[in-house]
Design a protein around this nucleic acid. Sequence first.
DNA 1: GCGATCAGCGGCACG
DNA 2: CGTGCCGTTGATCGC
Lengths: 248, 248
Amino acid sequence: MLEEKKTIDEALARNNLLILVGNANVKYFGRASSKLSNGDRLVIVKPDGTFLVHQNSGMKAINYQGPGSIVKTFLSGDKLILKSERLKPVHEAIEVEFTGKIQIHSFSMHDDKKINVIGSEKQLAVELEQNIGFIEKNLKILTNEADVKRGFIDLLAQDSEGNLVAIELKRRRASLDAVTQLERYVTELRKRKNVKVRGIVCAPGITPNALKLLESRGFQFFNLKYDSSQMNVRIEGLEKKQNTLNFY
Amino acid sequence: MLEEKKTIDEALARNNLLILVGNANVKYFGRASSKLSNGDRLVIVKPDGTFLVHQNSGMKAINYQGPGSIVKTFLSGDKLILKSERLKPVHEAIEVEFTGKIQIHSFSMHDDKKINVIGSEKQLAVELEQNIGFIEKNLKILTNEADVKRGFIDLLAQDSEGNLVAIELKRRRASLDAVTQLERYVTELRKRKNVKVRGIVCAPGITPNALKLLESRGFQFFNLKYDSSQMNVRIEGLEKKQNTLNFY
DNA sequence: GCGATCAGCGGCACG
DNA sequence: CGTGCCGTTGATCGC
């Protein structure tokens, strides 16, 4: 194992991307604690300190450590141990104990590019701002990302009668929390301003429970159709699905 | 590139873990869309179809595709393209276009172990149930309430005066949404039952805004100290931090 | 299968 | 730094 340790230490010193595959058990302690007994595992150590342990299935690393962590190697009998440690935000560490042959590969990587993602909620909000007439004519956008002191409203508008309209926008099917979020904002606005306040959830679909809750609060739901799969955001429709008399 | 394609296709056919490192650009379309221009990238293909693209820094894969995705290879001039596609829940795909030399490694992995994590909210709830006297003497846990079984609420209890006590437990510092969630449960209970209902947030800390919101709703906050870093959950203290008269 | 919620959430933007 | 909130959230458990 001494040879493997040297190889790994060199790769770490060179600040390479390090890839290890072998039978190992994994322990973690810190914000929580975990144990994973022996099995074949993929370990990734990035130049920035990121430390990932993957099993042979599933998308997410089963154990991980963020950028800035320090990794060290130890020999314990005939076992090689990798320990990744960090102190902030809390003291936490992963220990990977390899029990046998380790396949080691290291790579020098150069990459300064940043991804460009289309279809975020923020972009949808901008798009909706342009097409706010779909919701209601004579609706005037006051602000986006309005600070209500107890949270942030996606879009704040004013209708033709001078009422405030708080709009909660979701990029996917609205759930209970979308409605409760909206309720918190609306409640806050009603407390502070001496104006009537309406609440609107705007999303591609809403769960039945969320719709019930929304109706019970006198809010409105607008079914939003959009496409963001072709590197641009296009709102294709905005259908009012709910017309309950609003007791605001 | 033909040789590389063969090597990769063989590894995929053998259902191995496949690791590729090389200069590539990445496109994604589906629930959203993204482009990432050329740079050195790490690509991981797991036997279950998981497809991950990593940059040389950061914890999370910059592009990804879940289990069940199908990966295929193509030659386009002197470029090798990997395409990972899936139809459910929506049609989405990643295309990785390698522009030069690719380092290819494949591994046969055997692993049927599952991780054991200590410190989940559920475990905390069980522990708190044992020490419920910390919150208030003569507090009785109502475990057979339907609301609890459905996971509707973390803990439901009854105080000495017969009032319902809804407890929202958080494994980390409580934020606005913890209070909002609690408010939804309490509102629901007040509507359904003909009993007075109190609300308690129990967490290791609470943000100032959340505390204000909590107080404005007449709820209570209990500061929870616990340790779960040594493979067991131990509640070390439970300090009442808030004593506002509850107008329930 | 959808629905609700947790997560060692991570990441980002803002004060 | 902490707070708030989004995320191609993913993972899990219940219905």
